[in-house]
Amino acid sequence: MSRLTPPVGADDHALGPADAPVTLVEYGDYECPHCGRAAPIVERVVRRFGDRLRFVFRNFPLTEMHPHAEHAAEAAESAGAHGGERGFWAMHHAIYAHQQDGPDALGDARLAEYAGELGLDGRAVLADVRAERSAERIQSDFMSGVRSGVNGTPTFFINGRRFDEAWDDEGLSAAIERAGARGQA
């Protein structure tokens, strides 16, 4: 039970080489405080493994609990649409970096500001967010998560298998090492 469906494909937001021996997938919600705590951990792990790891992020906004999660996801997708994959990842990191700034940290206007600070067209991002241009993609990410056995946020998959252990630096790193070793055997 609980294998990643569908597997990582060309439409996914990915950091690192497509032929890396290990792929780490996170299903996350931009307003979820646990995902906020996981963000710097994932960044460290990505740096540590370099070309040996590909990291993929899929949206899993729990909108009933997190009223800003959907628009924050829209903003990251919009940054990707205007600024390519670099734009997406810059916005992804910016949102998590600002997540705990205050009650309105992920309000539409603030999201547009973050985009502007990254050199993107803040007004275009704001328009995309308000029009919910990426709603279909976000919903499709969400349903793929449900199908894959995502049970809360963040949920990680390592080479397609759900990772049920603690997602601290050591736990993630050890599991990635193990998956890499299995791949070579």
């Binding site: 039970m1 609980s2 199908r147 056995g149 049970n151």
Partner: peptide, 10 residues
Amino acid sequence: GVNPGADGIL
């Protein structure tokens, strides 16, 4: 201690 998710139900 493990949240079973929804995939099995669906």
